[in-house]
């Protein structure tokens, strides 16, 4: 039972990170119907930006309060990652809008290759590990010689995730920007005719997705303390799985899917085998897409004759 609780906590933490990345997939798919293949690598780039920002702040500028440093790191990572995502959309996707359906997908795969190899060339292929931060833990239960712990990191991850999701939800549900996004999702041409700046709305969607990926990237850095140029693909695919599982196009679905994928991965590793945890994630992806492509909270797609 203790093991179960511990894994539950770990799973929710991991799931929060997946959920944050998944939102980027689900929003972009919702608005332009494209699997933004480079999103996982945008996330990876954000972990590097966060790493560099943290190193500069703590070693050069001597910021001693770790929470203050992390807040600044979070903002820096969000700003720069958003800028990168905006540029990618502008350069690699926008010229292809409305053209051949495969072209944006290939362009996105190309972008994903560019991002991971750029980071490899610019920062080197080795793992980058930071000194562990926020190491204190709360011991929730120590029955039976097994400690169930909740670390400061995990609290931070959950709090930041919930806080940012609340802000994000408010933007999408209550502001004119959110309305424009939903309008573009329904019918881009009609939205344009009604005076919605479609290009701008799509740009902002990419920026918002990237900002949330940067949050995930910062939290990932804090949680694991290690980043590598190749860490974009697998979390990216898992986050995409989360988006699909929750119902692609649905924002609560992405978060729910993220949590589920996090929990499944953690419990699978704990109770079955660590080696096959990625096989489990990929299998879920395949099974969900084949048997319930609309996901848990998505709308069913009816074939028109």
């Amino acid at each position: 039972m203790e093991v179960f609780f511990q894994q539950l906590i770990n799973g929710v933490t991991l799931g929060s990170i997946y959920g944050l990345i998944a939102i980027g997939y689900t929003m972009v798919f919702g608005i332009i119907g494209m699997v933004n293949f480079s999103h996982g690598d945008v996330f990876m780039v954000s972990t590097f930006i966060a790493l560099i920002a943290l190193m500069v702040l703590t070693t050069w500028l001597g910021v001693s309060s770790i929470l203050l440093a992390l807040l600044i790191v979070l903002i820096i990572a969000m700003v720069f990652t958003s800028l990168i995502s905006w540029t990618i959309e502008r350069v690699a996707y926008r010229p292809l809008r409305g053209s051949f359906r495969l072209a944006p997908l290939i362009s996105a795969i190309g972008m994903s290759i560019v991002l991971s190899n750029f980071v490899q060339v610019a920062q080197g292929p080795r793992n980058k590990a930071i000194d562990p931060i926020l190491n204190s833990v709360f011991v929730l239960s120590a029955a039976g010689g097994y400690q169930v712990t909740l670390s400061y990191k995990q609290i931070l991850i959950m709090v930041v995730t919930v806080g940012l999701l609340a802000i994000f939800w408010w933007v999408v549900a209550k502001t004119p920007l959110g309305r424009a996004q939903r309008a573009c999702e329904q019918d881009r041409k009609m939205a344009a005719l009604l005076g919605v700046d479609v290009d701008r709305t799509i740009s902002i969607t990419f920026v918002m997705g990237a900002a949330l990926a940067a949050v995930a990237g910062t939290l990932y850095l804090v949680y694991y303390g290690v980043v590598n140029f190749s860490d974009g693909f697998t979390p990216g695919v898992k986050a995409f799985t989360a988006a699909v599982l929750g119902g692609i196009g649905s924002l609560p679905g992405a978060v729910l899917g993220g949590l589920l994928i996090g929990l499944i991965e953690v419990f699978w590793s704990a109770y079955f085998s660590v080696e096959y945890k990625d096989v489990a994630a990929f299998s879920i992806l395949a099974i969900v897409l084949i048997f319930m492509p609309q996901g848990i909270l998505g709308r069913p797609d009816v074939e028109k004759v």
């Binding site: 690699a92 944006p104 795969i109 190309g110 290759i113």
Partner: peptide
């Protein structure tokens, strides 16, 4: 691979 990826984007555009 950096150049390969870049070429993919450029040719598609």
């Amino acid at each position: 691979m950096l150049i390969f990826g870049f070429a993919m984007v450029v040719i598609m555009v």
